Deep mutational scan, measured.
Amino acid sequence: MAEQVALSRTQVCGILREELFQGDAFHQSDTHIFIIMGASGDLAKKKIYPTIWWLFRDGLLPENTFIVGYARSRLTVADIRKQSEPFFKATPEEKLKLEDFFARNSYVAGQYDDAASYQRLNSHMNALHLGSQANRLFYLALPPTVYEAVTKNIHESCMSQIGWNRIIVEKPFGRDLQSSDRLSNHISSLFREDQIYRIDHYLGKEMVQNLMVLRFANRIFGPIWNRDNIACVILTFKEPFGTEGRGGYFDEFGIIRDVMQNHLLQMLCLVAMEKPASTNSDDVRDEKVKVLKCISEVQANNVVLGQYVGNPDGEGEATKGYLDDPTVPRGSTTATFAAVVLYVENERWDGVPFILRCGKALNERKAEVRLQFHDVAGDIFHQQCKRNELVIRVQPNEAVYTKMMTKKPGMFFNPEESELDLTYGNRYKNVKLPDAYERLILDVFCGSQMHFVRSDELREAWRIFTPLLHQIELEKPKPIPYIYGSRGPTEADELMKRVGFQYEGTYKWVNP
């Protein structure tokens, strides 16, 4: 592979701008107003304001973009700056750019259920340069409990009458099928589907988006991507930290609602779906819905739930269990780990287990898709061969690698495990991989909904998990304890083995 010439960040961002501006969906010269509902909250200060700053800094926003914060707290732009700027990672050389960014910011205080507050917000936006005809993007960085009041008031008082209007809704989209349907029906009564952007930030990850290209742009994968060759698929999300004093919020939802029903299920769809007619948003989402419709409700015998306990040999936070978090209700049975087996009941995947695993306070930070292939028929190497695996590593250190057998150097035919490896950090030294939120917010500006969740996708996802969630809430089974920093409950490994996964433990990928 030829040595790549190092590029400056300015040059890299210039390439990104060229890609972005050559499309006809990006209205570079139009006025846009980006409204952050819930501007005083954690999500706004840690993710949304920093993301908008990065896009502005790199010249990736339309030229005439204004940012308006809205929340109940009586704040000023200076207050917003004070709480969000520490997350910007701005350099001293960017000081003038930073001043320009905050000059485009404003803030309006108001209630979430008060019509007069929204009329005041609308008047404020109209007073901005060309504000009355601007395109408006409303980001709901809010708890779902206020979605209905907020969307109703936005629709009645704050819509642009000339430009387009788009609304970005953060997960969780309800707690179960019934609450999700209620919320979807409410929002759909106010906005068209092409105006609604239900954001799952995992769909903005580079390697998640790469799944489609790997599958449908490489001839070698087509013939082997089926039940005849693939023994099982494992989708993993692991965090090495616990709730760390923020367990009160987590306890309301648990690990299945927080990660599995959305992030992991979306990745499953991209692995299992048929080739779409095109890369058009609805063509892709149509195929994802077909996959979900082929999955039956989760069966309790295919589920393992766990909850982390303190590690007596650990240090600091590792010595504390979930129930030691003062914000967690006493005696909570909320799971911090889950392993679930699903089956896609169609011709391509009949009988292939899709194993979804996620948890907190585990032994490493990792998100990946792992396809394990069947054993080689007619073994001539005296059971020395391990199964081939194709691994798409989402985070950290984005990579695609194939675990395969090669001859060990020497005189004899002794096979050993090795890999074919594409590590993004080595291959793409001159490429700026956008943060997931950067990519998705740019998608909203461009009107691309491919990486957002459609209402029928959402409904099918909740259909699969709601009976299990209701059973857990009714019966309150005690989750299996696992030690902070471990791989999780051993019962999860036993479940995976029972459905056909072979864990060798003899080879570990190392970032080159």
Rank of each mutant, 00 (worst) to 15 (best):
A44P: 03
E94A: 06
R166G: 08
P92D: 08
V150C: 13
Q11H: 13
G248Y: 07
I187G: 02
L61M: 09
S106W: 07
L130T: 12
I255E: 11
P223L: 09
F173Y: 13
Q119M: 09
E156G: 13
Y118Q: 06
L130G: 10
F101A: 02
T151L: 08
R198T: 02
I196S: 04
T145W: 07
F102K: 03
W225P: 02
F34V: 11
C232F: 05
F26Y: 13
K97F: 13
L190N: 14
L183E: 01
I187S: 04
Y202F: 13
D251Q: 03
R227T: 10
P240W: 10
F88A: 03
A103T: 12
I256L: 10
E239M: 01
T243I: 11
L98F: 04
A44F: 03
H155Q: 15
Y112V: 04
Q111G: 12
K95R: 08
R175F: 15
I199D: 03
D114F: 08
E156L: 11
N226V: 03
K47F: 10
T91M: 12
S184P: 01
P62H: 10
D79K: 09
L55H: 09
A90Y: 05
P92S: 13
E244I: 12
A44Y: 01
E99G: 08
E85K: 05
A115C: 11
E244A: 11
H129D: 13
L98I: 12
E244S: 11
S106F: 11
Y147T: 03
R257G: 05
L177I: 11
C158K: 03
E63N: 06
L43G: 01
C232H: 06
A39Q: 02
S157H: 11
E99N: 09
E206D: 03
Y118C: 11
F237N: 04
Q111W: 14
I67Q: 00
G174D: 11
N218A: 01
E239G: 03
V150W: 01
V12F: 15
I15C: 13
N185W: 09
F87A: 06
Y118I: 07
E156N: 11
R9P: 08
Q28S: 14
N218C: 07
D200T: 04
F250H: 02
V208C: 14
N122C: 11
L183A: 03
F88W: 04
I80Y: 10
D181C: 10
V68L: 12
F66L: 12
S132Q: 08
I187R: 00
K45R: 14
S117K: 08
I168K: 05
V12R: 07
W164I: 06
S117R: 15
R166A: 01
F56H: 04
I230Y: 04
R57N: 12
D181T: 09
G174A: 04
I220P: 06
D24Q: 03
C232V: 05
E193F: 01
T243L: 07
L121W: 02
S73Q: 06
M125P: 02
D194E: 07
R175W: 05
I33D: 04
C158G: 11
S184K: 04
A231E: 07
P172T: 00
A141M: 05
M207Q: 09
D114T: 04
Q111E: 10
N229A: 04
E193M: 03
F138K: 03
D200R: 02
I196N: 01
I80T: 03
F241C: 08
Y107Q: 06
Q22A: 13
Q195E: 15
G254N: 11
F138Y: 06
Q133N: 12
E206T: 09
R81E: 08
A134H: 11
F191M: 11
I167M: 13
E93S: 07
T243E: 03
N153Y: 10
E193P: 02
S8L: 05
G163D: 08
I36K: 00
S157V: 09
D24P: 05
I15V: 10
S179K: 04
Y139S: 11
S29C: 15
R57W: 01
I199C: 04
S40Y: 04
L16F: 15
R246D: 01
F21R: 13
G14R: 15
S132G: 11
P62Y: 06
Y202D: 00
A217K: 01
H155T: 13
Y107G: 02
V208Y: 07
L7K: 14
N122V: 12
I48V: 11
G41D: 02
E63A: 12
T76Y: 06
S180V: 08
D42P: 01
L142C: 06
A127G: 07
F216W: 05
N153L: 13
L140G: 12
P92G: 08
P92L: 04
R198K: 01
T31G: 14
F34A: 09
V146M: 04
L130F: 11
N226R: 03
A2E: 05
L235P: 01
G59Q: 08
G38W: 01
D251N: 12
M159L: 07
K46V: 04
I154L: 13
L98E: 07
A25C: 12
Y197E: 00
A90N: 10
L128Q: 11
E170G: 01
H32D: 08
N185K: 11
Y107N: 08
S180C: 07
V68F: 11
T151W: 13
V208F: 04
G14D: 15
G23Q: 10
V169S: 03
K45L: 13
P62S: 08
N126F: 08
D58W: 02
S184C: 14
P86A: 15
D24L: 05
S29L: 11
T236G: 10
V150Q: 03
E148G: 11
P240Y: 13
L177A: 14
A127W: 05
K97Y: 06
A109P: 10
S184E: 07
F87C: 14
H201V: 00
G222C: 13
L203Q: 04
G245F: 09
V108A: 07
H186G: 06
A103K: 15
R166T: 00
A109D: 08
T243W: 01
I220R: 00
H201R: 00
R72L: 03
A25T: 15
H186R: 14
F88G: 08
G14V: 07
L137M: 11
K89F: 08
M212V: 05
S189P: 13
D42T: 03
W54Q: 12
L177C: 05
E18D: 05
F21P: 10
F253T: 04
Q209K: 02
V150P: 04
S40A: 02
I230G: 04
F250R: 00
K238T: 04
R9Y: 13
L7W: 06
L211E: 02
T151Y: 06
D58S: 07
L235W: 07
L140N: 07
K89V: 12
E148H: 13
A103W: 10
N229I: 06
V146K: 09
Y107K: 01
Y147G: 03
F101S: 00
E63I: 11
I187P: 01
R227P: 03
E206F: 10
D42E: 03
G38I: 02
S106G: 09
R175D: 08
G245E: 10
N135I: 05
Y107E: 06
G242P: 04
E170C: 01
Q111M: 09
L60Q: 08
W53L: 02
I154A: 13
V68S: 01
V108E: 07
L130Q: 14
I220N: 00
L96M: 10
E94C: 06
N105P: 00
N185C: 09
R136G: 06
T65N: 05
I35H: 02
R246E: 01
F173G: 04
L55A: 11
K238C: 06
Q195H: 09
F191D: 00
N105A: 09
R219E: 04
L190F: 11
V68W: 00
L16W: 11
R192S: 05
S117P: 10
R57T: 03
H155F: 11
I15P: 07
S157E: 14
S40H: 02
R175S: 14
T76G: 11
I196Y: 02
A134F: 14
F191H: 03
D24N: 13
K47W: 06
T243S: 10
A90E: 06
G23M: 13
H186D: 09
R175Y: 09
V77R: 07
S179N: 06
S184I: 10
V169R: 00
R182W: 12
I224A: 05
V150R: 01
G41K: 01
G247P: 05
S179W: 03
R166L: 02
E99I: 08
M125A: 14
P86L: 08
G41H: 00
D24M: 09
L75V: 12
L96A: 15
D200V: 01
Y107F: 12
A103S: 07
F173P: 03
R219D: 06
F191W: 09
L75W: 14
G222N: 13
I15Q: 07
